[in-house]
């Protein structure tokens, strides 16, 4: 293992350790735990969006699959009385199933059209939830979505996971497992096909890669993860509403993208970084009220203008700036910082 690999692993382990030690540190203030809980759920959603970028598409419809996951989970638990864990998996699978059903025609559409298509699809799913009042409660919302309830944990005894402080473990745990799976997939053999498709769609097809097939697998996995995050959210919040202002609205779809780009879309930890930074800034600037959106907007624009690799890419960015400075000092012309390689 290389030195970088070591530091990377240590960083990851440190992150996980901190994540699980947080409730103990923050025992006096469960409020921050609810924030971190949401943060974990959002990170999963953003990561699912990033996963689609591996096939060079920008899906603005991850929120749509989160709607499906959330309401399916609520329906399974409330109407069919299925316990938490099977329901969590089933609702995510349901969301993946819907993605599978629409995948073939959807993935034929490319580029900007794919983004618009997925954005409108997500909005359609939300509106269906909004108007299907017998199932979803409509704009009044659905209340009383159960959480995991009291469960037996080995070595510990019975723990009531409905309390936000304890639900945190479930949310963070599930999200970590999901992220590990995504990470593994990105390193696995299948990602070679995805990368081939990302780099050159036609060439990938020409060398015998089943382009639509591999795209479908990617899309379905991303939908599964989005559905999972929706289901986790339903049990966290205990109520759901499909209002425009809710987390299932169009603006959320777009924010997810902003989270990803601010963090750094080329890095696996980009979504985590972007979500963490932007959500914590939003929490820290709570008191500034109407100026708050302005701060988020300014950060998004500044990052894309000056840090095209995102926050995670800062070290690399700094290195490239230094290199350019050194070369300029040495009298070499015509070099620009990485990401700004001249107009030629």
């Amino acid at each position: 293992m290389t030195k970088r690999g070591w530091t990377k692993l240590l960083l990851w382990v440190g992150l996980v350790v901190i994540a699980f030690a947080l409730p103990t540190i923050l025992r006096r203030d469960p409020y921050w735990l609810t924030v971190f809980c949401l943060l974990a759920i959002n990170t999963l959603l953003v990561s699912s969006l990033r996963s689609v970028t591996l096939i060079n598409e920008i899906s603005l419809g991850q929120v749509g699959f989160a709607v499906i996951g959330a309401y399916a989970h609520a329906a399974l638990m409330m109407k069919a009385h299925i316990p938490f864990w099977p329901s969590l998996i089933l609702s995510s699978l349901f969301s993946a199933l819907i993605a599978l059903a629409v995948a073939y025609p959807f993935l034929k559409v490319k580029g900007i059209y794919f983004s618009i298509l997925t954005l409108l699809t997500a909005e359609t799913f939300r509106l269906v939830a909004y108007y299907w009042t017998s199932m979803t409660g409509g704009s009044l919302g659905l209340t009383g979505v159960p959480g995991p309830g009291k469960q037996q944990v080995p070595f510990v005894g019975e723990v009531n996971f409905d309390r936000p402080a304890n639900y945190y473990y479930i949310a963070v745990g599930v999200v970590l497992v999901a992220l590990l799976i995504l990470y593994w997939l990105e390193r696995a053999y299948i990602s070679f096909q995805w990368r081939a498709i990302r780099d050159d769609n036609l060439l990938a097809g020409a060398v015998g890669i089943n382009v639509i097939g591999y795209k479908t697998i990617n899309f379905v996995i991303a939908a599964f993860m989005a559905g999972l995050s929706g289901a986790l959210f339903a049990s966290y919040q205990h109520n759901l509403s499909p209002d425009t202002t809710s987390r299932f609205g169009v603006s959320m779809s777009i924010y997810l993208l902003v989270y990803m780009v601010v963090g750094g879309k080329d890095y696996f930890v980009g979504p985590l970084m972007g979500t963490t930074v932007l959500m914590l800034i939003a929490e820290a600037t709570r008191s500034s009220q109407q100026y708050q959106p302005m701060i988020t907007g300014a950060i998004a624009i500044l990052v894309i203008l000056f840090l095209p690799m995102g926050l995670v890419g800062i070290p690399k960015q700094v290195r490239s700036w230094r290199r350019v400075k050194r070369l300029r000092a040495a009298g070499v012309d015509g070099v620009n910082p990485a990401g700004k390689e001249g107009k030629a």
């Binding site: 692993l9 350790v17 699980f20 947080l22 070595f155 510990v156 005894g157 723990v159 473990y169 745990g173």
Partner: peptide
């Protein structure tokens, strides 16, 4: 081996914090 150590560490912290929350309960 590093991976194993890390995994043990993670599980240890997990159990510790869970037991903390159970105590709170």
């Amino acid at each position: 081996r590093v991976f194993l150590i890390c995994a043990v560490l993670v599980i240890g912290v997990l159990l510790f914090s869970l037991s903390a929350c159970a105590k709170e309960e």
